[in-house]
């Protein structure tokens, strides 16, 4: 994934975090986002990560990382412990979609979710041309992708409606990490949502 895009995604999330707020980053990897939220925004950060190598890297970064599997929910984390619970570019890899969204809004007051938009025009072109899409935000081949769920902005918003989740804000980015304002489900490659109850 490109550095520019990582930053664009993280820039938005960082702008939503106020000093002193508690943030839980699910699938935090080596803790880069948390480190930024701690250093730049004065947040109190925790991460959940499953992979051994990433957990080790997060410890090397001085991150409060809790090793665990998101598919098992967030059992043990108390209700309303966090101001923001972040799931960055991970929802499409989670099998129990509704459960994780519910869990995020149980332990946090706000869920921040970003995911690749399958209806991005280049992806549509790829499928029209007979091939599964490979792009900045969907960088895998069909046979090695960790992604389990392929969905669009409209699909996600329909799920939010079904789950009675309130969309507080939505920002959509193109492949270069620029904000998209028109036709987001067609021109947007990555979507970032703030959700509440």
């Amino acid at each position: 994934m490109s550095q520019a895009l990582d930053r664009a995604d993280f820039d938005l999330i960082a702008s939503w975090v106020q000093p002193g707020e508690r943030v839980l980053d699910l699938g935090c990897g080596d803790g880069s986002l948390l480190k930024r939220l701690i250093d730049e925004r004065g947040a109190k950060g925790y991460g959940v990560e499953l992979e051994d190598a990433e957990v080790l890297a997060a410890i090397a970064n001085g991150i409060n990382v809790v090793q665990g599997n998101l598919e098992q929910g967030l059992a043990g984390f108390d209700d309303a412990t966090f101001n923001h619970v972040v799931l960055s570019r991970t929802l499409q890899t989670v099998r129990h979609t509704e459960r994780i969204l519910g869990e995020m809004l149980r332990v946090g007051r706000e869920a921040v979710v970003s995911f690749p938009n399958f209806a991005y025009w280049k992806n549509r072109m790829a499928v029209m041309g007979g091939r599964m899409p490979v792009s900045e935000d969907l960088p895998y081949e069909w046979f090695n992708t960790p992604n389990l769920r392929f969905f669009t902005l409209l699909d996600f918003e329909a799920l939010c409606l079904k789950m009675k989740l309130v969309i507080r804000e939505r920002q959509v980015l193109d492949e270069a990490g620029r904000l998209v304002t028109e036709e987001p489900n067609f021109l947007g490659s990555l979507a970032v949502y703030r959700l509440g109850r």
């Binding site: 925790y46 809790v66 090793q67 665990g68 108390d78």
Partner: peptide, 10 residues
């Protein structure tokens, strides 16, 4: 974590 204390768990 509940208390906001620093902890890493492996």
């Amino acid at each position: 974590v509940h208390n906001g204390q620093d902890v890493a768990y492996v």
